[in-house]
């Protein structure tokens, strides 16, 4: 049945649909509804909800549950996500699947509680220490908040790694209609590596991240890198809008993409060949989306300029890449994006 849901509630409902067995969280605006929904509904669905004493505890509880082979999730925002970074590095280093939701708010520091996309670097480049990556999915609607949660659990188990849903305060707080009964299929993966009791196995399964022998550690890191390369080949995902003949392409993810789409439509009405590329996977970044020749790309973000660096790497100097951003909780303006498109079309954008 179609129902109106907050993005945060949709994430939580979809996680339960995906068979999440443990949720460990700590409240912080604007993601608290995820915890609240889980507190109410996860126990009645046979799972464990626990409000930890801090975000650090929560992420390390995730490590424990994931190591035991359970589907597990945590969520946070801003300062809370920063606290989790050490634990995320450990999860990546131990090859543990889990889903982490970041409902981004303005930073740095305590920042503010209004929506932002300024945690892109932290999510995509690795906020913790060491050579590791997360698969990062960027929903742009409440429906996608739900769908991508299911996808995140499937990907996490398939690739044995943490998957992050990078959302923002608007997507978390807003309500839209969602068909919570019509979500993608849940995939099930055997977890013979899990520390879930020795059973019939000859050896103990040990989940660890410490490798004092540098040769062994390098081997572990390189094998993980091979996996990341395979993921980059298989899972780049993006959405195109009016791109077939587009000369000026706006690229934006999440809620910003919806504002950019409206600007692109208005540019088309003015006779400018504009289009939109909306990255859906931020890691792996959809490099393939930027293969076609354009006159220019404008990267619009709710940050001081983060994804634009990956766009520049993808374009690799073939045509100009411009940036437009608002940050601190301020929203990109349709009018201002339109203005950028017009200036880029006239060659006046710098």
């Amino acid at each position: 049945m179609k129902q109106m849901m907050k993005g945060n509630e949709a994430v939580a409902a979809a996680a339960i649909y995906s068979g999440v067995k443990c949720f460990f969280g700590y409240p912080i605006t604007p993601q608290t509804e995820i915890s609240a929904y889980m507190a109410k509904h996860l126990p009645e669905n046979g799972g464990v909800f626990l409000q930890a004493e801090s975000e650090i505890s929560a992420i390390n509880m995730v490590y424990g549950a994931a190591g035991a082979g359970f589907r597990v999730m945590t969520s946070s925002s801003g300062p809370g996500m920063s606290l989790k970074q050490e634990g995320i590095s450990f999860l990546a280093g131990a090859d543990l699947p889990c889903v982490i939701v970041n409902v981004m708010r303005g930073g740095p520091g305590l920042g503010g509680i209004q929506p932002s996309q300024a945690d892109y670097f932290q999510a995509v480049k690795g906020g913790g220490h060491g050579d590791y990556r997360l698969i990062v999915l960027a929903p742009a609607s409440v429906r996608e908040m739900a769908e991508f949660t299911v996808r995140a659990f499937n990907l996490a188990d398939k690739w044995r790694m943490p998957v992050m849903i990078l959302s923002d305060g608007i997507l978390g707080q807003m309500m839209e209609a969602v068909e919570i009964d019509e979500l993608p299929a849940v995939e099930h993966y055997e977890k013979p590596w899990a520390a879930s009791g020795r059973g019939e196995r000859k050896e103990h399964n040990i989940i660890k991240t410490l490798y004092l022998d540098p040769e062994e550690l390098e081997r572990m890191v390189f094998s993980r890198e091979e996996r990341y390369k395979e993921i980059a080949r298989e899972h780049q995902d993006w959405e195109e809008y009016l791109c077939d003949d587009a000369e000026i392409v706006v690229t934006a993810y999440g809620i910003t993409a919806r504002i950019a789409r409206a600007a692109v439509e208005r540019a088309r009405e003015k006779g400018i060949k504009a289009g939109l590329i909306r990255p859906i996977t931020l890691y792996p970044f959809p490099v393939k989306a930027f293969e076609n020749e354009r006159r220019a790309v404008i990267c619009a973000e709710m940050s001081a300029g983060q994804m634009v660096e990956d766009v520049r790497l993808a374009v690799n100097g073939r045509y100009p890449v411009y940036f437009y951003g608002r940050t601190g909780g301020m929203l990109p303006d349709e009018e201002e994006i339109l203005n950028c498109i017009e200036r880029a079309a006239k060659g006046e954008m710098v």
Binding site: I113, M175, A177
Partner: peptide
């Protein structure tokens, strides 16, 4: 309003102030 719009077959979004 959002629920009624959905029941009427429209697309609808509801965005609260949460500050």
């Amino acid at each position: 309003v959002a629920q009624a719009a959905m029941l009427s077959g429209y697309e609808a979004s509801w965005l609260p102030s949460y500050g």
